[in-house]
Amino acid sequence: MLFIINAMRSLARTLDRGLWRDIALVCLAVGVIGVSYGAIAVTSGFPWWFPVLMGSLVLAASSEFLFVGIVAAGGSPIAALLAALLVNARHLPFGLAVPDVLGRGWRGLLGTHLMNDETVVFAIAQDGLPRKRAAYWACGLGILACWPAGASLGALLGSVVRDTDALGLDAMFPAVIMALIVPAMKDAKLRRTALAGVALALVATFFLPPGLPVLVALAALPLFTPAAAPTEGAVR
């Protein structure tokens, strides 16, 4: 507990108010998506505690939606597990991209658990290691609190409202991920690469099992060629 308080103090010093606001809004949005997740899980027949427990232990939204979706559609738990693990395979390149922000020892274990789409994007967007680290931890701890809290609220909601599709809750998750990557799309080369990856993934969706198409998108990476040698090392 003391560690958390100390961590928050040093975070408060490192980050400016605009960034704090952005992180708080992302955490709030994650909480709202958590509501949709909890509601969908409960209306699919899961007990109320299941999305809350899974939210805390897995802490990776898309894989949890996928897991719940496959089991609810009558798929076997094994199929749900494999598909969800496949979706989470992107955490391997994530971990290669942000290894320095995670911390060491038992703190590093928590830091590793906090690795997700939002925290990685925030860390990458900052300049300098202290700011990267602070943004990563602030966003990560916020999500660790908001995601399961949203899920339990949604589970409550889901036991009252039966038709969650009528509320458009399924549009929330893609909207949030899109909002996260929009700033990176200003880079023309990256935009081209991402759009090519999207096209590959969409075509693959028609014949590959869930989870794989997202990884197929990586085949577009050769289109992305980083700036030439002279700028190397000068960037950071």
Partner: peptide, 12 residues
Amino acid sequence: TVVLLAALTATA
């Protein structure tokens, strides 16, 4: 990372 997230958005 960005390519994976873009593909995730589109498929979702």
